[in-house]
């Protein structure tokens, strides 16, 4: 019993480590890309300047958690070892909460984005928000995400009561669907290959969410149960390898599209000479670290885990989750930064 309690504490620590790393990365990213005040023009106040990226990264983490927790039943698979059901009920409760957090974060992002385009307004009224939704596509996308997240919330609550009578595939599909609207309304590119850049962006977001969410859910929900872990981690490892390849290919493509869109400056100059370029380098560094950490778990720890041995998985996974969440933090600042 004592062991179970300590793992529960260290598991909550993992969530805290992830959120902390993401917030630190947002802060670092904001410091790297300072806004120059524009003469004679009002800029939104500090609540919006710092609040928006912070809420946005919490939004991302809620989306990632929702995806991971809803994928968990599929990763565990149908031939479940004994004791899986109790773990999965806990995961369903957590999924319900993270889906609700996603919906609330989407609406908070909506209010903050409304405030961002209306720096003259002393306050934000409900009619201003609806006006923003009516005119700006990012507003519509956020409302759509909030709606999908509420559907996911309902499905998860239902599955807490009804178990796997609620198809896991449906829950996973709804969670993944919530990721799709936002990337296409954010900064893509004005290049002639825009459609490809958009598809690439969607795949990047899906890959990153499945990878991070999957790892988080598997480690946090299953680490205390060696049988389930030995059963599930090898399956997740294969999925993670696929995600890693997708994230790398699409990330490089999108970065190349953005960086080469700057006319009159060389690629190296843009990469090292602008805040945007530095953020790209930071994300590349995160990726290199993740590949190494992933390989470490795959080849050094996994054989022991499969043999039901005690391993240092939690520690390594905590590090990997921290790097992943930091990458999300940098990504949030990156999407808000104009290149050059």
């Amino acid at each position: 019993m004592k062991e179970a309690r300590t793992t529960a504490v260290s598991r909550l620590h993992l969530v805290g480590i992830g959120i902390g790393a993401a917030l630190l990365a947002v802060l670092a990213g904001l410091l790297l890309t300072p806004v120059r005040p524009i003469t004679g023009v009002l800029e939104p106040d500090a609540v919006v300047r710092y609040g928006l990226p912070v809420v946005r990264v919490l939004f991302d983490l809620a989306a990632v958690a929702t995806v991971g927790l809803n994928l968990l039943p599929i990763l565990v698979g149908l031939s479940r070892p004994k004791g899986a059901e109790r773990v999965l009920t806990g995961a369903r409760r957590a999924a319900a909460f993270s889906a609700l957090a996603l919906a609330v974060a989407a609406l908070a992002t909506l209010v903050l984005q409304t405030a961002e385009v209306l720096p003259h307004a002393a306050g934000i009224s409900f009619s201003r928000v609806t006006e923003y939704v009516a005119t700006v596509s990012a507003g519509k996308a956020l409302v759509f995400v909030a709606a999908v997240a509420l559907v996911s919330f309902g499905l998860s609550l239902w599955s807490v009561r009804a178990g796997e009578a609620v198809p896991a595939e449906l829950r996973a599909a709804v969670a993944l669907f919530a990721l799709l609207p936002l990337p296409v309304t954010g900064h893509a590119t004005n290049w002639r290959w825009q459609d490809y850049a958009m598809i690439s962006m969607e795949l990047h977001v899906l890959g990153a969410a499945v990878w991070t969410g999957g790892l988080g859910a598997v480690v946090i929900a299953l680490a205390a149960n060696r049988t389930l872990l030995a059963h599930t981690l090898p399956r997740f490892s294969r999925l993670a390898t696929a995600c890693l390849c997708v994230v790398a290919a699409t990330g490089l493509f999108n970065a190349a599209v953005e960086l080469t869109s700057v006319t009159g400056r060389g690629l190296v100059d843009v990469l090292f000479g602008t805040g945007y370029g530095l953020l790209v380098i930071l994300k590349l560094a995160c990726f290199a670290g993740l590949a190494a950490l992933g390989a470490n778990i795959r080849w050094r720890l996994l054989p022991g885990i499969v043999r039901h041995q005690r391993t240092a998985l939690i520690g390594w996974a905590a590090l990997e989750i921290a790097v992943m969440c930091a990458a999300f933090g940098f990504a949030v600042v990156l999407t808000r930064t104009p290149v050059a």
């Binding site: 596509s137 669907f177 799709l180 609207p181 296409v184 309304t185 004005n190 459609d195």
Partner: peptide, 16 residues
């Protein structure tokens, strides 16, 4: 999903 939103939001870019 891509189809849906590619139709809904054709313009998405850095405006400069």
């Amino acid at each position: 999903g891509l189809g849906l939103f590619a139709l809904a939001a054709p313009a998405s870019a850095h405006n400069s």
